[in-house]
Design a protein around this nucleic acid. Sequence first.
DNA 1: CAGCTATATTCCCGCAAGGTTATGTAACGA
DNA 2: TCGTTACATAACCTTGCGGGAATATAGCTG
Lengths: 109, 109
Amino acid sequence: MPATFDVLAEPVRRRILDLLLERPRLVGELTERLGLTQPGTSKHLKVLREAGLVRVRRDAQRRWYELRPEPLAEIDAWLAPYRRLWSASFDALERHLDEAPDDDPEETK
Amino acid sequence: MPATFDVLAEPVRRRILDLLLERPRLVGELTERLGLTQPGTSKHLKVLREAGLVRVRRDAQRRWYELRPEPLAEIDAWLAPYRRLWSASFDALERHLDEAPDDDPEETK
DNA sequence: CAGCTATATTCCCGCAAGGTTATGTAACGA
DNA sequence: TCGTTACATAACCTTGCGGGAATATAGCTG
């Protein structure tokens, strides 16, 4: 059982979820939008299914894939203790931009 | 630039961030806690550095690694449109569990 | 039944990610 | 200066993943 984070690391899979956020979709529809081959799409859908992030509804030969957002709560839970930190620094940035629009000797690369 | 999601897909790297959430740490300290070799730890730290998730402070031969939570906002932003969905089902669960003594659902941890 | 449609599964390939060992580098102490 | 500490980088190996092509499967339609 791959962790939810692992599943979401794949950009294609995040795009699938984004598409399913609007409405349920057929595999063929997703395949077209993603620009993948049909087996490629099915593979990603399988991963999403096993992670509990999507659910299938059968309709003859068709498969309607729909979102199942519950596992995302796991991500949110992990994120929770960090949230106050970056929102704090964001506030600090805002204050800084308000007061002194000066040079910024920050940041490496 | 590897996306933040990719960087977080690694369980070890999430553990590193969790450790840095408490306080800045030295590489040796992290190595010990993670049960990895020192080069292994350094490799993960490099990935985290390049993703902007940690920052280094030099202190003679030592390196204090500290958290830089800003990139996590990216994750939070992606998550945002989904949040109402699972919180809806969570609310349903709460209703099913009946009344809850509403003390402090925010600061508990 | 045959043939078509929609999707899943299998097989193979190339590559990149994690892990380890070995080595390089910078700063300290004696 | 020498040795040691603390960390980074390099080289190597192995494994797993994402991609495509080919094939299997299930359900229509006629």
